[in-house]
Amino acid sequence: MTTIDVNSLLSQMRRMTAVTELPSAKIDTVGKTAAPSDFGALLKQSLGSVADLQKTAGVQAAAFERGDKGVDLAQVMLSVQKADLGLSTVTQVRNKMVDAYKDIMNMSF
């Protein structure tokens, strides 16, 4: 049975959120992004951010393939790598959550 470090999981999700620059995050009076009130909101926000990254990468890649002016290959590659990193992070978080669920379900009372 594996042991899940909740603090490590949460810190990974916070880093993922910070890296993906959430455009929909609320800004408080100090100028820092306000943390979502619960885990579900954080997860939903993270998934939305990853979806936005993938959409942006797809649009930029298609524009580059069409030969549109002003589309830089380096920027396209950076967008694709950000989307890939976001997807792999979300996949790892999902796997950890499934493992935690299995561990909880296998507990005996």
Rank of each mutant, 00 (worst) to 15 (best):
E65M: 01
M77S: 15
D68F: 00
Q75G: 02
G70C: 02
L85W: 01
G86M: 00
N95T: 09
T91M: 03
D72M: 03
V71G: 14
V98C: 08
D72W: 02
V93I: 10
L85C: 08
D84T: 06
S79P: 07
L87T: 15
V93D: 06
S88Q: 14
Q75S: 09
T91E: 05
M77N: 15
V76S: 02
T89D: 07
K69T: 12
L73T: 05
A74V: 13
Q75D: 13
G70R: 08
R94N: 14
L87G: 13
V98H: 13
K96E: 06
V93K: 09
D68V: 05
V90K: 03
E65C: 00
A83Q: 00
D84V: 10
V80N: 01
M97K: 06
L73H: 15
V98K: 14
V76M: 06
Q92P: 01
L78V: 13
V80C: 01
G86E: 03
F64I: 03
N95M: 11
R66V: 07
D72T: 07
T91N: 07
A83R: 00
V80Y: 00
A74Y: 10
L78T: 15
L78S: 15
D84Q: 10
V90T: 05
V76F: 03
A83L: 04
N95R: 05
S79V: 04
D84A: 09
E65Q: 10
S88T: 14
G86R: 01
D68N: 14
R66M: 06
G86C: 00
T89Y: 06
E65T: 00
T89V: 03
K69R: 15
V71C: 14
R94Q: 10
G86P: 02
